[in-house]
């Protein structure tokens, strides 16, 4: 892993800078995970190991409802955004048209626009068209910012495909639709899975936009956690956060593995 021939390694103290860097990134998360198993009522003082807080989380109907909302929103937003992303990627690849770079940029722009701006804009938009705030508005807002996350892996996969494969299919009497259905789409699956998982966790983890556009009864897990924190950091918060972290890590890892498998083929 460490290549001694890399000239960077000649700098003295580099090793400790690296240690400090990773500590800065990950120690808080490890502390949070560790404290979620803390038996003490006060979240920040360690006394012993316990599953109590996880039991508490699973017994709390409000938390469960928030988790359910998060799942509904993430699933719906993932489906919608992946659908749009596939269509966009297929439209963008394999041909050139005027303004293509502009369109490409516009698809990815939500990644760059400050979230708070998107949040306020979405809220104003929903109010202007008279849409009742609730799960639907959250799903719509999430779909918008999930599109670029789903789009990028799908586009990358599509650009990696040999254009001769689609040509071979048309040569073998497949109409454009059959070419897409029988050749392009199956080969695109790793990209789609990877994109969908990224969209899913992005939606699961979102706070700012959800906070603005969620009405009463549409509270998602991150928003609920924020609400709990305001009344003090309880070990329960640590427990939910750890669960959320676990789901995220799992999905990112899965997305990575699927992407790699797709590359290998």
């Amino acid at each position: 892993m460490i290549n001694p021939r890399n000239p960077l390694w000649r700098f003295p103290g580099l090793f400790w800078v690296m240690v400090l860097f990773f500590a800065f990134l990950y120690v808080p998360i490890f502390v949070l995970v560790a404290l979620s198993f803390n038996a003490n009522q006060v979240a920040t003082i360690w006394t012993g190991f316990s599953w109590d807080w996880y039991k508490g989380v699973l017994d709390n109907p409000n938390i469960l409802r928030a988790a359910q909302n998060s799942l509904i929103v993430a699933t719906a937003a993932t489906l919608l955004s992946t659908l749009v992303a596939v269509a966009a990627a297929v439209g963008m690849t394999g041909r050139r048209f005027r303004g293509q770079n502009l369109f490409n940029g516009l698809v990815g722009l939500p990644l760059l626009v400050p979230e708070i701006v998107t949040a306020v804009a979405s809220l104003l938009f929903f109010l202007a068209i008279g849409l009742q705030l609730g799960l639907l508005t959250v799903i719509l807002a999430h779909t918008v910012f999930c599109i670029p996350f789903a789009y990028l892996p799908i586009r990358a996969r599509l650009e990696g495909l040999d254009p001769r494969l689609a040509e071979a299919a048309t040569d073998l009497y497949a109409s454009p639709w059959h070419t897409f259905r029988r050749v392009t789409l199956p080969l695109l699956v790793p990209g789609i899975v990877s994109g969908a998982m990224l969209a899913f966790i992005t939606s699961m983890d979102d706070f700012v936009i959800t906070f603005f556009v969620a009405g009463a009864g549409a509270t998602t897990l991150p928003v609920y956690i924020f609400g709990m924190i305001r009344t003090g950091i309880t070990p329960e918060v640590n427990a939910i956060s750890t669960l959320l972290l676990g789901v995220s890590v799992l999905l990112v890892a899965l997305s990575f593995v699927v992407g790699q498998r797709g590359q290998a083929r």
Partner: peptide
């Protein structure tokens, strides 16, 4: 191309990687 009674063998073969040999041959 899909309405022409003409078939091509590509330089890179362009076999469908997700299909078996038999499925590739059966495609047309």
């Amino acid at each position: 191309p899909y309405r022409r009674p003409v078939n091509t063998v590509f330089q890179s073969y362009a076999l469908f990687p997700h299909l078996s040999v038999a499925q590739n041959i059966a495609f047309g």
